[in-house]
Simulated scan of single mutants.
Amino acid sequence: MWIPTAPPSLETFLAPTLQPIPLIPAIAALLALLYLAGAVRLWSARRKWPVWRTLTFLSGCLVIAVVMGAGIEGYGLRMFSVFMFQQLTLMMAVPPLLILGRPGTLLLRATPHWGPGRLVLRLAHAGLRSRISRIALHPGFMIPLFLISFYGVYLSDLADQLLPSWYGHVSLEVLFLAAGVLFTVPLISTDPLPIRQTHFGRFVDIFAEMPLHAFFGVIIMMATTPVVDFFAVLPASWEVDPITDQGIAGGLAWSYGELPSVLIVLFILVRWQRDDARQAVAADRHAETNGTPELDAYNAYISRLNDRADRAHRS
């Protein structure tokens, strides 16, 4: 692994510095190429595909490439605050960008129905119907996985065991991205899904995560000793105190980690209001066309009761 020696600065953070095995940036580049190929195929066939969704997905891939392929990745091997920034970006900022691009819908629309494409479509449909996908997107699985990515990794020896090696470091980064995607998909995705939550269920899920997420940041900020021994020693020439750096990491978890959650809450509320308005309009149109048999029957029943009461009163 490439580990920086120069003191941290904005210039060194953003300098293009690929690791010897840039696995995650390569995956991001491959995803971007596949997505762009699918969008171009639809456009070439004069089929509509929103440009803004394409730009959103490509932006998510670009963020992954920068966070994992620039100097940030090297400094994340030494500084807790930088590694926390990477984690929060992979879990909170990148997944909404990827999901709003609707890659699942693009896959189903752009993949040819012959040759290898037929096999890809069969696998995609099998994945949608599988029990594994239902479990992976269930709140009983995704919320604990999301929280384990914070509490389980840092408040145990797991981080100290995995971070020193390339395999462990990359495995944690993949875990963060996967946990973020699994948590975000049921909240904002409009792709075909094996299960789809109600708006109220999404609202409950995001509010169940937000306080625990913020509480983790407070724990890290208030700690007076190193939480992760791997980040306890920094080069003296950097003039960075490990405890101060740890406090910055906790502050990021509390602030930067909460901002995407608030935006998702607003997104859910707006979509909830739009769906309710759309259903109300559809119900009014249906009533105008077909009438309201149940309401008419109820009104007739009330009218008969009133007639009986009037007759009884007169008699």
Rank of each mutant, 00 (worst) to 15 (best):
P235L: 04
P211I: 04
G201P: 00
G180A: 08
G201H: 02
W238I: 13
V174P: 09
P192L: 03
I195K: 10
H213T: 13
P186V: 02
P194L: 07
A232M: 05
P186T: 05
I220W: 07
Q197S: 07
Q197I: 00
S237G: 08
V218E: 07
D205K: 02
P194W: 06
L234G: 03
A179D: 15
S189T: 02
I220N: 04
W238P: 09
T198N: 11
L187R: 03
H199E: 09
I195T: 15
L193V: 15
F176V: 10
L177I: 03
M221A: 06
I219A: 08
F231H: 03
F231P: 00
T224N: 14
R196Y: 01
I243A: 11
F200Y: 14
D229R: 11
I243W: 01
E173S: 06
R196N: 07
V181F: 11
F203R: 10
L182F: 14
V174Q: 09
D241E: 11
I188Y: 12
G217Y: 04
F203T: 11
L193G: 12
P194F: 03
T190N: 09
T225P: 01
I188A: 01
D229C: 00
L182G: 10
P242N: 14
V227N: 07
P186S: 03
E209D: 10
F200G: 01
L182N: 12
A232E: 08
R196D: 09
L182A: 13
P242D: 15
G217M: 02
R202T: 13
G247N: 08
V233T: 15
T198C: 03
G180L: 06
V181E: 14
I206P: 00
H213F: 06
T244E: 09
F216Q: 03
A223S: 15
V233W: 12
Q246C: 04
G180I: 01
R196L: 05
T244F: 01
L234Q: 08
T184Y: 09
V185R: 10
E209Q: 05
E173H: 13
T198F: 03
L212C: 12
W238Q: 11
A214M: 12
V185H: 13
F207Q: 10
V228N: 05
P186D: 10
I220R: 04
A236Y: 13
D241Q: 04
H199K: 04
V218P: 04
L234V: 14
L234C: 06
M210G: 04
H199W: 13
G201W: 07
V240L: 11
T224H: 12
A223F: 02
V174T: 06
A223W: 02
L175I: 01
E209S: 05
L187T: 05
T244W: 00
G247L: 05
G180D: 10
V185W: 13
T224W: 10
P192Q: 08
F207M: 08
L234A: 04
F231E: 03
T198H: 10
A236H: 14
E209I: 08
A179S: 15
S189C: 05
P194N: 11
H199P: 02
I188D: 05
F207N: 13
F200T: 04
I188L: 11
V218W: 08
A223M: 08
H199Y: 14
A214E: 15
L177P: 00
I195A: 02
V240N: 04
V204H: 10
D205R: 01
S189I: 00
T224I: 01
A179Q: 12
